[in-house]
Design a protein around this nucleic acid. Structure first.
Lengths: 133, 133
DNA sequence: CAGCTAGTTTGATGGTTGTCGTACAAAGCG
DNA sequence: CGCTTTGTACGACAACCATCAAACTAGCTG
């Protein structure tokens, strides 16, 4: 492992698999990560997410997302900066990310959100207004 | 159990969970089932699919799809008729099914389908966009 | 340098999943 | 009535997965 040029392994755009992406997004923790990553184009560190899991689990989830091609990870110092691979995803699976993100936004949380879901569907588009303060 | 009045259990429309749907669709066998089910609105028997698994596995996959709310199963004689719950899915997760189906169509099979993918993308877009009206 | 911070690696664990084979049940056909 | 067809139920099993704790690495900082 002496190679200092150790770039973290990311799948190529043509290598993206639908099954892997769907599986990556089927976990609530990972879906939350992606949802948070989707609002704003900036880079997020792993620690900037309020996830209900330990660091090791966090590492695992980010790895799954990265290997599925959903996110890109870039090392900077001790921190790892994560970005959504939106353009690659959109190029390969047009509309998939937005649709899932939208569905997650309108149906996340519990099961009694029917009313809120409806309003959200009708009113919210693209820009995220929900931010836990 | 043996109760003959056993209506097969299906989740209600408001009960559909995004994670469960994504997970159900993340398996290649199940994705193929759904894709085959999606072309034409008719009912398919379980045996009408050319699946590379045994009957028991088939039963399992159909059960997963049913419990995720993706398909509806109706008993008729010894056969079980399966239909896609397209309206329920569309109502709860607008565009999700079409987008995934489209992505599956353009990237399924092998890995060398770039040309077919391009044509399909150019031609069939439009249904998966968000509906504002 | 010592300590802190951010995150990985390893190993373990309990749960889930996809797969199968065999046994079973019900409907229909000879 | 028996046999075939269509599919389920029941274990069983290997693989995988999400999770954690503990040990570790590598930058940054006082």
């Amino acid at each position: 492992m002496g190679t200092t040029s150790d770039q973290i392994a990311h799948p190529d755009r043509d290598e993206l698999e639908l099954g892997a992406v769907l599986h990556a997004l089927s976990d609530p923790v990972r879906l939350k990560i992606v949802a948070e990553l989707a609002q704003g184009e900036m880079e997020h560190t792993c620690g900037s997410f309020a996830l209900p899991v330990t660091k090791s689990t966090c590492t695992h989830h980010f790895k799954v997302l990265r290997e599925a091609g959903v996110i890109k990870q870039r090392q900077q110092g001790t921190t790892r900066l994560n970005t959504l691979r939106r353009s690659d995803l959109d190029a390969r699976f047009p509309g998939l990310l937005d649709t899932i993100l939208h569905a997650a936004r309108t149906s996340a949380g519990g099961a009694e959100e029917a009313a809120a879901s409806l309003t959200a569907v009708a009113g919210t588009m693209g820009t995220s207004a929900m931010r836990a303060a």
